[in-house]
Design a protein around this nucleic acid. Structure first.
Length: 562
RNA sequence: UGUCCUGUGGUGUAAUUGGCAACACGUCUGACUCUGGAUCAGAAGAGUCCAGGUUCGACCCCUGGCAGGACAACCA
């Protein structure tokens, strides 16, 4: 029974793996598996792209194949070198290696041009002189067939000549296009004589001004796959309707042997998150966030800055799975993945984010003890850190209650708790200001109970603390979900997704931390004891470190309390 | 009143290709702890969109519905 289950787990393949396994078994592609990750360099990568990256590179490595990085740079007006650089950085950071296979659709412009000439000669493409509006109008609607272009049956030689002159720059933008001659009555809109080339007098981030005609996605993509000998061209569901066209071009080019096949999977959606580049760009441009790498953004760079690890994102992508049905993944799963990673790997540090002073009346003024605290209980081999202890400390305001309910195990008048790594203390009295706000908690300690002394006394609660005279002040940014509703895209007519922005998604507090964080460098991650996981921000200044909250610890007391 | 795709616990993914549904997240109990985190133990929660059919037997096959999504850029 147990054996059966474990075998099941091992043999349980997702649908793409099943396709590949079958292809391999049938001897397709000569036993090769070759995938590609093909971003357009028109923005920053987000967690949805991470899924695609993990999928494509993961499939390749699982089946001992290769995965290319290919920039789909066929629209110079939207693309920039900055994006190319950030994409490369993000893919690398995620832990994937495309080796020497960094390709660009723009590398194939010449070959694509030759292929187009071939199609014209075969009578399968023609130069059309209708305006954009005319083409759109002539295409019809999904239910109504389109009309034939008046240029559809012009002589091959004429199209050939015109196409060459398009390339030479003799015509202004929009004056002519090259269209595939397919079927204006097809129920599939993409088959109604799709545009293959448009005239764009724009300089390209890689080819400069060498070209003024640029291939459309459908024309460039499949052919690029073919030229790179891709076996499995994996893309998202919205390209499903493009597949017949993808096949048509390959057929028209009379490619009969080993050709790429397109397969679609459902893109990732995350609750409390928007994923479209357009919307993310809007948040950036209109200043709702500080930039593409704002720690609240679902971009790879945002998650990185927030403190997510590459491994946690890879694990997430794995747990999310692949299928063809639309999905909305619970943000809690992503959070679970980073907690799991950081709980195991992040060193601990004590921090007080909402401090209240605590004075130990019977502890000698001026005395300082250097206590040993374990760096990471999950990794004892990492040893200890030193934490100074003194008469005046700060504890978390929420760790004290004057009138505690039954199951409150923290500090309250007359009650005892342990200060982590230090002593058992008892609360003797509280000092308040005129408004009744607690200003100071007065305690006594039991000198026999220092950690490691082997005291057998038991208390129900343990508090974390920081020595007032030694604490390091830090800016601590507490992040919460960017949107306050599960599906921000679900808006009523005329409303914007921005109406669902969470006004409390960022709260900045001044925290007090144990002095060991002085050595922390940007990118370092910690678990603040009893609080959550934090990452040192890239903008951190030497004197006052800046921390981003990666995730909070689950507060069971809050759960009991509610 | 077009074509294509998809419907399995709250969420996501499985089910050896026909043998009465498993795993993960989440939720809820409890135990333990020098963090009430972590860990450990346990529970609730779907009978697989609906209706027929084939079959000894259907999440899986067939028929017909229904629901959701994609597609009408010289974007990708």
């Amino acid at each position: 029974m147990e054996n059966k289950e474990s075998t099941d787990k091992n043999t349980s393949l997702n649908f793409l793996e099943q396709i590949i396994t079958k292809d391999l078994a049938e001897g397709k592609h000569g036993g090769r598996v070759h995938t590609r990750f093909p971003p357009e360099p028109n923005g920053y990568l987000h967690i949805g792209h991470a899924k695609s990256i993990c999928l494509n590179f993961g499939l390749a490595s699982k089946y001992k194949g290769k995965c290319n990085l290919r920039f789909d740079d066929t629209n110079p007006t939207k693309e920039e070198q900055e994006y190319v650089d950030s994409i490369k950085e993000d893919v690398r950071w995620l832990g994937f290696d495309w080796e020497d296979r960094e390709f660009y659709a723009s590398d194939y412009f010449e070959q694509l041009y030759e292929m187009a000439v071939f199609l014209i000669k075969k009578g399968k493409a023609y130069v059309c002189e209708m305006t954009g509006d005319e083409i759109a109008a002539g295409r019809g609607t999904p239910a109504i067939p389109g009309r034939l272009s008046p240029w559809r049956d012009r002589p091959v030689e004429e199209s050939l000549g015109l196409f060459e002159r398009m390339r030479l720059g003799e015509f202004p933008n929009g004056k002519k296009v090259l269209r595939a001659k397919i079927d204006m009555a097809s129920p599939n809109m993409h088959m109604r004589d799709p545009v293959m080339y448009r005239i764009m007098h724009a300089s390209h981030h890689r080819t400069g001004d060498r070209w003024c005609i640029y291939p459309m996605y459908d024309w460039a993509h499949g052919q690029s796959d073919y030229l790179e000998k891709i076996t499995h061209s994996v893309c998202t569901l919205e390209f499903e309707v493009h597949r017949p066209l993808y096949e048509w071009f390959l057929d028209a080019l009379e490619i009969t042997g080993d050709r790429p096949r397109q397969h679609e999977f459902a893109r990732l959606n995350l609750s409390y998150t928007v994923m479209s580049k357009r919307k993310l760009l809007e948040l950036v441009k209109e200043g709702y966030v500080s930039g593409w790498d704002d720690p609240r953004m679902p971009t790879i760079s945002g998650l990185r800055r927030r403190g997510y690890t590459p491994a946690s994102i890879r694990v997430f992508s794995d747990k999310v799975g692949v299928a063809k049905r639309e999905n909305v993944i619970d943000l809690a799963l992503l959070e679970h993945c980073i907690r799991e990673d950081l709980n195991r790997n992040a060193p601990r540090v004590m921090a007080v984010l909402d401090p209240v002073k605590l004075v130990i009346e019977n502890y000698p003024a001026g005395q300082v003890e250097e206590l040993q605290a374990i760096r990471n209980p999950e990794k004892p081999e990492e040893g200890h850190r030193i934490v100074p202890f003194s008469r005046t400390l700060y504890i978390e305001r929420s760790d004290f209650m004057e009138d505690p309910p039954k199951k409150f195990f923290r500090l309250s008048p007359g009650n005892e708790v342990r200060l982590k790594y230090a002593y058992i203390i008892r609360c003797e009295s509280v000092v308040k200001d005129e408004e009744g706000r607690i200003m100071e908690i007065r305690c006594t300690y039991d000198p026999e109970t220092r950690s490691g002394m082997g005291s057998t006394r038991k208390v129900k609660g343990t508090l974390h603390w920081v020595s007032a005279g030694h604490a390091v002040e830090a800016e601590v940014r507490l992040y919460d979900r960017l949107f306050s509703v599960e599906n921000p895209d679900d808006v009523s007519e005329g409303e914007s997704f921005k109406s669902h922005l969470n006004p409390d998604s960022l709260q900045v507090v001044k925290g007090l931390l144990e002095p060991s964080v002085r050595e922390a460098a940007p990118g370092d991650r910690f678990q603040f004891e009893r609080t959550g996981y934090f990452c040192v921000d890239k903008d951190s200044k030497p004197g006052v470190p800046v921390f981003n909250r990666t995730a909070s610890l689950r507060d069971s007391w809050a759960r009991i309390n509610k």
